[in-house]
Simulated scan of single mutants.
Amino acid sequence: MKVLHLSSEASWRGGEQQIAYLITELQKLNVDVMVACKKGSPFEDFCIQEHIPYKAINFSHQYAPGTALKIKNICNEFQADILHMHSSKSHGAGVIATLLGAKANLVLSRRVDFPVKQGKLSQFKYNFDGIKRIICVSDAIKDITARGIKDSSKLVTVHSGIDIDKFHPESVNKSILHTQFNIPTDKIIIGNTSALAPHKDYFTFINTADILLKSNKNLHFCIIGKGKLKGEIENYIQKKQLTENFTLTGFINNIPDVLPALDLFLMTSETEGLGTSILDAFASKVPVVATAAGGIPEMVIHKKTGMIAPIKDVETLAKNVKEVFADLNLQKDIVSGAFKHLHSFSKEQTALKTLEIYKQILSEKAIKS
């Protein structure tokens, strides 16, 4: 089986990490992979480093004929059975490439927590006959996407996965954050490792911290990540007079070493496809309190694998945090339950389920022919 993956983004975020995991696991399953990625992107660097066959193209616009023509040529020269599109831009480019003569079966990954737009172009590309499956990262995304898809039988759920083997929480230095960022050793650290982006809703995170600090001054909050909202977040922390209670670490690449140093992981997202940073917290054996955004409730089952609260409900979020710290048996149970639940969300499982979908498509094609 030959699969061409389209990675159109100039940055490296959760979606790109998922493509990387999928490709490397598919190779272990004897799938012949090729990548068409954006020229000069981190994904090109990844392909070079991991010796993955690739072609770098501009991906200037999702409907750019030049980009689509290059994809068509790569696809047909590679003799791809499957053309897997991993983002909106690669989706448009893949559809146009097919119209220009690319011969592969189309598969689309859908990771975002908002409906398909009703405009003619969006409706055309999402309901394009050449798309055989739309793989959604959660049941929540599947339900949202279904509203804009005429043939809902094309929709399937395959949860994103993580590399569980990277995490060894029992052997890490639990005081790494205290030492590295001069946080007093007696402080209880609550943190999040998400990008500083609007949908992560760090303002709710800060408002929850404000409530918690009114009854417990021994807390410290770490925001681990980078993003365009850094200035706004810093200003809001200052406005709430919480500067001494917060540390913005910036991007940290050794997450498996840092996450186990948290005493609690607090995710306050407003929208979320799945939220794999929660899976990282599960693997780090850190208790999780989160909002019920997108696919989060498929991971965080209340009082079994974590604690869940309505979106933007700072009072319930704060109450849940207090309950976790007050009840050590509850804390132990949710950490244990989360670690067991985690094994349904491994990168190996994601690849196996995706490969099964590829096989179904080719089997259906063989029957029709």
Rank of each mutant, 00 (worst) to 15 (best):
V172I: 13
T247S: 12
I224P: 00
K340E: 15
I131K: 00
R133Y: 11
S344C: 10
L266Y: 03
K285R: 12
R13Q: 10
K217C: 01
L108N: 05
L22F: 03
H91Q: 06
K228G: 12
S160F: 13
A10Y: 14
P42Y: 06
I367Q: 12
L6H: 14
G306E: 06
H91S: 05
S194N: 15
V33A: 04
S41D: 12
E25Y: 04
T291E: 02
Q331Y: 01
G225L: 07
G295M: 10
D165C: 03
N76P: 00
Y236P: 10
G15Y: 04
R147L: 11
G130P: 08
V300K: 00
Y202L: 07
L266G: 05
L213N: 10
M34V: 07
F265H: 10
A80Y: 08
L279D: 09
I134G: 12
K340G: 07
S175N: 13
K142E: 09
K353H: 05
A64I: 08
S171I: 11
D186H: 12
P287K: 00
L262V: 01
V258E: 05
D113G: 15
K230P: 01
Q18V: 04
R147H: 05
S269A: 09
V95E: 13
I71M: 14
S7G: 12
T249K: 01
N73D: 15
P115G: 02
A309F: 02
P53T: 08
T354V: 05
A146Y: 07
